[in-house]
Every structure is written in C-alpha cells, then in structure tokens.
Simulated scan of single mutants.
Amino acid sequence: MLSRTASSLYWLGRYIERADFAARLVEATVRLDVLSPRPAGELAWGSALAVTDASEAFAARGAHLGQQSVARFLTLDSTHPGSILSCLDKARTNARAVRTALSRDAWTAINRAWLVFDGRSSPGGASATINLIEAVKAETRGFEGAIHRMLRNQTTWFIRLGQAIERADNTARLLDVKYHILLPEGEPVGGVVDRDQWTTILQTVSAVTAYRWLYSDGLTPANVIDLLIARHELPRSLAASADEAVEFLSHLAKRTGHHGEADRLARARHARMMKVRSADVILGGLHQYLDDFLDENARLHHAIGRQFKFA
C-alpha cells in the first residue's frame, strides 16, 4: 500500500471519529444547558470549547458564550478546523482519495453526513440543533457499520487505527475538563448540577447504560473515572483504545512488514493500562495522569506516521 493511501485511510478514521465526538459533545451540552441553572449552562458551553481545545479560537471571534454562538462554531463554522462540518469535509476529501478501497456503503455514509450541512447557515435552537446532531450521528454510525462489514485488510485496519488514536484523545480531554473545570463555583460536589454533568459525560461517550450494568452503587465521580480509564469493556475508554491500537498495529505489521517504534509505544502503553487502577490514578493526580496520557498518545500518533512513512 502506498504511504499516501495509508495516510488518507488513517486520517479518514480520525476525522470521522472527531466529527462524531463533536456531535455527541454538542448534543450533551445542549441537554445540560437546558437542564442547568445559570451560570452553569454558560459554563457548560465554555467546557465544550475547552474539551475540543477551541477556547482561544472562539474567543477571537468576539462572540457571546452561549448556545447559539458556540453550537454554530462547533457544528457549521467552516473556518474552524475542529467543527463537525470541517471534519466531515476533510474526511470526505480523504475518502475520495481512496474511493476504490471503500465499500459503497462507507462512501455513501460519509457523503450523506457531509450533505446534512448543505444550505445550512445556523444549527437553529435547541431542538433544531439536536435534530441536526442526530442526522450526523446516524451517518457516522452508518460509516462505522460499513467498516465492520468490509474485508479485514489494510484498509479497515488503518481506518480503525486512526479512530482508536482519536477516541483516546477525545476521552482523555473530556474527562480532564470535567474533573477540573466544569462545576460552577459554589455548587456542591455530589449536588444536582454535579450529577447532571457527570451524566452528560456518560452520554457523550454513549456509556449511560454501560455504567448501570457495571456499577450498582449509584452515580459517583470515582466510578465514572474508573469506567472511562480502566474498563476494557467500554469501547471509548482509554484502556479499550490502547487495546485496539496494539491489535491493529499487529495486523498491519503482519501484512506490511512495517514494525517499529509505534508498535513498541503501543505495547508499552497497553501493558501499563492492563495494570492501571483508577483509585491510584486519582490519588496520584488525575490531571497529571491525563496530561501524560495525551502526550503519550501524541507520540504514538507521530510514530505511526513515521513507521508507515506518511509523517
């Protein structure tokens, strides 16, 4: 496989995953905003920007921090590289470059997701925004299903590797922002706002039902942290992302013969994740742990590019 083809497939996976995460984040924030008293709602939109590392870019616009302006920025702003529209546009460009490697279902899902935004200039109010997000999520789920039905070969492994790296990054940022920023001053830990916000985190990673299956002692921050870091059963956990990175790199090494720094980094991270205990992470400093994880994930991303010669 040519390095530029590998690059397009890998980035296709990352951009689709990034668009899906942004959609889920906007949806959860809209719901939290509706439920929360002021200023908790405004703070929720500020946290959505922080999770996507877009606070400075949004501030440069000089817009009011609220649902209409932030939702438009994160969904429809073509000048913001992290908006859903921008991510889908980049995903579509990469998909077009490897069109013959994709199934018709996979290409159609990407194209339809991009067309959801055709002719739109605003996401609308809360209900309209939710409807827009649901349409995007339906197509990203369609793409995910199409990938699972394709041949298990280099095409699917590069796409899913990109998704795994992106998913790890998104979950770590989401958890870090909630733990350190989101709760308004004066609001009690364990209070209504705090519980609503932790529920929103679970909604963003599609883990509300999973949480209820795995924990019987009610909603607690410690359990949510445990779920998102250490539970391999949850597809969007850090542990599951580490599992997948090793798996797909192993498949690619056997098929392509490219084996090196990325494999070593992925296996070392996986070995640590197999031993991680969320209680120890919290005691040792969650913020520092997540910072280190994000740095390690970035190193793995760059190592993948060098190993497959598309850095």
Rank of each mutant, 00 (worst) to 15 (best):
F143P: 02
E139R: 00
G145W: 05
I16E: 00
V26E: 03
E56Y: 06
A138P: 02
W45F: 12
R120K: 15
T100M: 13
A63I: 07
A54F: 02
G82S: 15
T100Q: 12
D89V: 11
A106E: 02
E27I: 03
R99M: 01
G142I: 08
L74H: 00
R72E: 03
I16R: 03
A60C: 05
A59R: 13
T75V: 10
N131V: 12
A22Y: 04
H64L: 14
L132F: 01
L76P: 09
V116G: 10
M1Y: 12
A59L: 10
S3F: 11
R31S: 09
T100I: 14
L2V: 06
M1C: 09
S83A: 14
S3P: 13
I133C: 01
F143M: 00
V34A: 13
T100A: 13
S7A: 15
A19E: 07
S7N: 15
L9S: 08
Q67G: 12
H64Y: 14
D89F: 08
L43A: 08
N131E: 14
T140F: 04
A63E: 14
G46N: 08
L65V: 13
A71Q: 03
R104K: 14
R4K: 15
R92V: 03
N94H: 11
G145E: 00
L25V: 03
R104G: 05
T5M: 15
W45D: 02
G66R: 02
W45T: 06
A54T: 04
T93S: 14
A126G: 11
I130Q: 04
S103K: 05
P81G: 10
S86E: 07
A57V: 02
E56S: 13
T140V: 06
R120D: 07
R141K: 11
G119Y: 05
C87I: 10
D53N: 09
F58N: 09
Y10P: 02
W11K: 02
P81V: 12
Q68C: 02
Q68W: 07
R24W: 01
V136H: 03
A95S: 14
E134Y: 03
T129Y: 06
D33K: 00
F58Q: 06
L132H: 00
R24Q: 10
R31F: 07
P81R: 09
E139K: 00
S86Q: 07
A19N: 05
T129L: 08
T75G: 00
A101M: 14
L9Y: 08
D118E: 15
D77K: 11
S122Y: 10
V116Y: 01
T79E: 15
A128I: 09
R14K: 12
A138C: 00
D20L: 05
L115G: 12
R141M: 05
G119F: 10
L25E: 02
A59T: 11
